[in-house]
Design a protein around this nucleic acid. Structure first.
Lengths: 274, 274
DNA sequence: CAAATAGTGTCTCTAAGACAATATCAC
DNA sequence: GTGATATTGTCTTAGAGACACTATTTG
């Protein structure tokens, strides 16, 4: 009788064909626009990082940053590595979105993708930006559902406008997947991945633990509220928002002054690893 | 300049090493135990399907049903196929749990696993059972957290008792992963996959849409309540449970009689695809 | 009738939403 | 002072939990 040790030393993974495995990352950032008046607070915009494809297939179209899984790393590590290679920033959080494994999803062959959402603070991006090779750009992004139940995804960066129309794929499964109806400018099935990422992000942003990752260590409660409102595309009364996050933050003694209105106290995330 | 068509016809996926891709499925069922008295309702137990490994590695240990992803199918299809091969039953629902890609997780080599939870109704299993080859068995399962924050997983089928102790792996990511501290009788990292599956299942079972999948088309509200209580390991007052599910069910004209107590009306899931 | 479950009505409490009022700064 | 945001307090309302009570069956 063969021992396990013997078995393993003789074992070869069968020669069945194997898929290539990639990760694609939807990296979201919230950027503050320029102020319209010296005393007004800046507007926030949700941004998504896309990379212009230099070669075939989908040449000159835009894609999520991503790449092949390497031996010795986990898919999470791969996702973090890819996003760091593209931005020089290590994301504060990544969350799994799902596996995209439709056999036809990539014209190059059998390639399945593990999709992740990542959250990056504007502060960390500003610190490294400047040198960038212009093939990676932050797009202003919106994602809304219309009356017919279809979803409209829009991505804008300067003169470049990408868009897609999607429908929810009813599958009786837990996570909603999306079906691409129209697509303009996005490579592969990335419109569907972005839509699914949005769903995950918006679901997570209900937890007051996720939204901190968009901000620096110290922040005002108004900026925290703006983060949630920008992601969820809703608005809350400041009084109620403050009450609701009060358990998650703690005061500092610092204030933001010089804004033409009452100074805002800076808060810090409370250390409540439940 | 090469066209996309030309590019693709010349394209070969690089010879980088590729991982083998599998799916593993944690299939849950709720079974009713024998009545302790002619008029009492039966107790419910949560069961998990495991397969005894016939060969190396982890020979004679128990594993989740699963198998290699085949060309032309999605990972969801693979999960459904595997569970159907093992049980002759097509699950009413599957939900993604996560990707397990630790390089050391499988002694045979580089194998990453896509884990799913699936829900199977007792009724459908009873219809096909009997012939079974005894290598696949339903284990009574419990999963609880102790004071130290450790989790204890226990699986029992007749004289076979499997168990594991796990800790939550704090990673700042969305989904909690688990770290195996002790493991007795379970193959690979399947204790961690089962723990993660439990987390997903318990989270989903809060939605009154998931729990229907454990029951036949028509059911009593009490049996529906028992399903939720069995999964979540909590108890609710019947009056409140009824109020809470009232939006998800509709009455039928049928009753369950002959139980030694007031007959229970049968209900049906309401068709509210939101 | 006893034992058991099925089903209804209502009180309380809490958290979320709405709204009003006050505080504080730069110009 | 004016225009803007910051911050606090309180009223209202919707939903979850607790509890008491009634209804209906079989042995």
């Amino acid at each position: 009788m063969e021992s396990e040790k013997e078995f393993l030393s003789n074992y070869k993974l069968s020669d069945y064909e194997r898929p290539s495995v990639t990760t694609d990352v939807a990296a979201f950032m919230i950027s503050s626009e320029d102020k319209t008046s010296y005393r007004k607070n800046p507007e926030n915009k949700l941004q998504l990082l896309l990379v212009k494809r230099g070669g075939h297939p989908y040449k000159d179209m835009w894609a999520l940053p991503g790449g092949f899984l390497q031996k010795g790393e986990t898919v999470e590590e791969c996702a973090l590595r890819e996003i760091q290679e593209e931005t020089q920033v290590l994301p504060t959080a990544i969350m799994p979105v799902g596996v995209f494994s439709d056999p036809d999803r990539d014209p190059r062959g059998w390639i399945i993708s593990n999709a992740y959402v990542s959250i990056i603070s504007e502060e960390s991006v500003r610190q490294v930006s400047g040198d960038d090779a212009a093939d990676a750009q932050w797009f202003s992004v919106s994602f809304d559902r219309n009356e017919n139940g279809e979803y409209y995804l829009s991505l804008v960066y300067e003169d470049t406008e990408l868009s897609a129309v999607l429908a929810e794929k009813k599958s009786g499964f837990g996570r909603t997947k999306f079906h691409i109806i129209e697509n303009s400018g996005l490579a592969f099935d990335h419109a569907a991945i972005i839509a699914a990422s949005f769903t995950v992000l918006r679901n997570e942003a209900k937890n007051y633990n996720t939204i901190f990752d968009f901000l620096p260590e110290k922040f005002t409660l108004t900026s925290l509220q703006k983060v949630q409102e920008t992601i969820m595309n809703v608005s809350v009364l400041p009084a109620n928002f403050r009450r609701m996050v009060s358990g998650y933050v703690e005061e500092t003694d610092e204030y933001v002054r010089g804004e033409g209105h009452r100074p805002a106290r800076l808060y810090r995330r409370k250390n409540t690893m439940i």
